[in-house]
């Protein structure tokens, strides 16, 4: 069908043979590239499944730990989601506030520079965030915050247990993840806030709104879906983020609710990074299988993010 559209568009007879021949090659190349992307993605799912399946279906006694796959991956899934949610809880409000600061409060020239810096920060490798976290943030929190929380807030399950002295806790990991995803959420939110039609902002101001009332009345309703999908994309990134967690977290096997101790559920990605280089045989298959689980989780989150974004935009236009 595509081919015929092209030919009908081109079939005026003005061009010579070379034109038609060149067109066919060019169209074929570009279509091939598109199809290759589909094939690649199918390949990702297929190969992960092929290499992961032996790890899922394995007899627990063949592995050193005697867990079934579900028992093995359960705490990792918990840790992955837990860490990502902590990161999101910290990053989302800050990112939205910073986006508003840049889009509506900072002087315009300053705002442009800030926007540039935020974009740049989104590109800083996470391994760098990781070593910064373990070097600077972990000791800072371990000395100043965790002992206090352990002494005074241990009635809250999140802060129970003996406070870590190394700072290699779920909370530290979550905070570094928050720093990693902050630029992403900020960049998307800033973009949608800046797109608020001037007409709506002026309508609000002309009714006698203060700046904040104008933002609440015109900017936030307009940008809400964009911000939510930005936050979901940040969540997806946090779920899959590997190095920052692998470097910082001190992992244990099991489910742990406290976020200030040295006993933490590991995340899927970090577990792979820590174990894969030294693994062989079925162990590798099992790690790949956990990767497949991670793929499915992030796929779900990202699909949801796109649904939210799509729903929002048609609503704003209509």
């Amino acid at each position: 069908m595509t081919q015929s559209t092209i030919e009908s568009a081109q079939g005026s007879g003005v061009e010579g043979r070379t034109g038609r021949f060149g067109d066919r090659i060019f169209a074929g190349l570009s279509k091939g590239a598109g199809v290759l992307i589909l094939v690649t993605l199918a390949g990702v799912a297929l190969f992960l499944f092929r290499e992961g399946y032996p790890g899922i279906n394995v007899d627990p006694s063949e592995m050193d730990g005697s867990d079934t796959f579900i028992q093995y991956v359960g705490p990792l899934v918990f840790g992955t989601i837990f860490a990502a949610l902590i990161a999101l809880a910290i990053a989302a409000p800050l990112a939205i506030a910073v986006a508003l600061f840049i889009s509506h409060y900072a002087p315009r020239r300053v705002a442009r520079t800030l926007g540039y810096l935020i974009d740049l920060l989104a590109a800083i490798p996470s391994v760098v965030f990781g070593i910064w976290g373990i070097r600077v943030l972990a000791p800072l929190l371990a000395q100043n915050v965790y002992p206090w929380l352990g002494d005074n807030a241990s009635f809250i399950p999140l802060f129970s247990g003996s406070a870590s002295t190394s700072g290699r806790t779920m909370l530290t990991a979550g905070m570094v993840l928050a720093v990693v995803i902050l630029p992403i959420i900020t960049a998307i939110s800033r973009e949608v806030f800046l797109q608020t039609p001037r007409l709506h902002e002026e309508a609000s101001l002309a009714l006698g709104a203060t700046k904040w009332e104008m933002i609440r009345q015109a900017v936030i309703p307009y940008g809400r879906s964009g911000v939510i999908s930005g936050a979901m994309l940040g969540l997806g990134r946090a779920l899959g983020e590997t190095m920052a967690v692998a470097i910082i977290l001190s992992p244990s096997d099991g489910y742990f609710w406290s976020i200030i101790t040295n006993q933490n559920s590991n995340t899927i990605a970090s577990n792979i990074a820590l174990k894969f280089p030294e693994s062989s045989g079925l162990e590798v298959n099992r790690l790949i299988a956990t990767g497949l689980v991670l793929f499915v989780i992030t796929f779900g989150v990202n699909a949801l993010a796109r649904r939210v974004a799509a729903a929002g935009f048609s609503g704003a236009d209509g």
């Binding site: 039609p197 309508a203 609000s204 009714l207 006698g208 009345q217």
Partner: peptide, 26 residues
């Protein structure tokens, strides 16, 4: 701006609000 209201060149009701909410916005 409360005492001196304004109507703009292009109609600009708030798209996320209902008709009634638009009237009550101010």
């Amino acid at each position: 701006r409360r005492k001196i209201g304004m109507v703009f060149q292009r109609p600009n009701p708030f798209p996320t609000m209902s008709i009634a909410e638009n009237v009550l916005a101010g």
